[in-house]
Computed example of a mutant assay.
Amino acid sequence: MTETAAVPTALLRARAEIDLGALRANVRTLRARVGDLAVMAVVKADGYGHGAVRCARAAVEAGATWLGTATPEEALALRAAGLTQRALCWLWVPGGPWRQAIEADIDVSLSGMWALREVTEAARAAGRTARVQLKADTGLGRNGCQPGADWAELVAAALRAEAEGLVRVTGLWSHFACADEPGHPSIAAQLTRFREMVAYAEGQGVRPEVRHIANSPATLTLPETHFDLVRPGIAMYGLSPSPEIGTPADFGLRPVMTLSASLALVKRVPGEHGVSYGHHYVTPGPTTLGLVPLGYGDGIPRHASGAGPVLVDGKWRTVAGRVAMDQFVVDLGGDEPPVGSRAVLFGPGEGGEPTAEDWAAACGTIGYEIVTRIGSRVPRVYVNEEERG
């Protein structure tokens, strides 16, 4: 997990400011929507680029009682950092670190018989009962056990392993395909299928601690999907799962990351001056150019070439020409802010700066990708680390 220290020299180039106060407030807002139900703070992919350990701690301070990761390595890193809350990891491959996860008291997700066989072998070797959750494919078509005979086989085998003391089935769960598209017919179909698969497992004798299917959009808009636990991911970081269901402000959320850099150069150029590789931008007349020392090596999408918005000297500018590996250029239109002036790529939008959603729209992608792809070369600078009394 990349939680980069804030180094003074690096701060002169770029920084991703992470507002842990905003994250705590977002978690509390999400908790208020679900009442007494449990909240799993999803911190996979290094906390969606925000820093998994720091964000996990802040989420726990705000009342999250579970942590969620994709890979076992991510979950084990949380344990190594001293986080002892219930944790679930769900993306396994054969030969994974099952025993380490069992010994670290991590819940592991099973989608098929091969995974059950491997976790029971690891439980025997460890001399400990493994906490397992059975994942149902209710229609996403990705990970998860198919309904019907496959589900019946997995449930029966898990119950046999439970009777032997090798596993404890702690959860039954699934994931939506289109919860971010209001009214999509798959939502009701998946919810019905999930209820059926849960009812079957419980009818066979499974007694889960938690049943869960609600991701961020379902947490925000589909209360009938909340069951025992909700799993907010992107919403915890203050981004909306999709423009169709509303803006962050509509849900009382505030973006947590602000990405900025210091202008490395400001210079005057004549008209018809080519800018960056391929000269896809040529100045229409005499102007000034500002050099922003961030590029696709830092996670700035190359698709933002000619489109990405940046706030410099109080005005929105646009990436001029191609984004290169380490830098890109903005046309300052004749303005001459001092070298070192702050260029804000995205943030909450409260100071007139673009948001991650503005960048997503410019690149034809989603806000998740914009924040998650910011690389380790950009220091994370944490603010509001302490709770205010």
Results as ranks from 00 to 15, higher is better:
T2V: 12
D19N: 15
A22H: 14
L30S: 12
L30P: 03
V34W: 06
L37E: 07
A45K: 01
R54Q: 15
G63M: 00
T65H: 11
G68Q: 11
T71N: 10
T71W: 10
E74C: 03
A80K: 11
L83T: 01
T84V: 09
R86S: 04
W90G: 12
W92D: 01
P94L: 07
P94R: 15
G95F: 14
G95A: 03
G96C: 05
W98V: 00
D105L: 13
G112A: 13
Q133F: 05
A136H: 10
G148N: 03
A152D: 14
A152F: 00
E153H: 05
L154T: 02
L166T: 05
H184W: 02
P185C: 13
P185S: 10
Q190N: 04
L191T: 10
F194K: 09
M197K: 11
A199L: 12
L222K: 05
E224C: 10
P241I: 02
S242D: 15
G246A: 08
A249M: 11
V256W: 04
S262H: 12
E272I: 07
V275T: 07
V275S: 04
G278A: 05
G285A: 15
P286D: 04
L294I: 15
L294T: 12
D298P: 02
A304H: 06
A304K: 12
S305M: 11
P309F: 05
K315R: 15
T318D: 09
G321L: 04
D331M: 01
L332G: 01
P338Y: 06
V339K: 15
G340E: 08
S341G: 01
P348C: 05
P348K: 06
E350I: 06
A356I: 08
G364I: 07
T365L: 14
I366T: 09
I370P: 00
V381E: 13
Y382L: 06
E385T: 13
R388F: 08
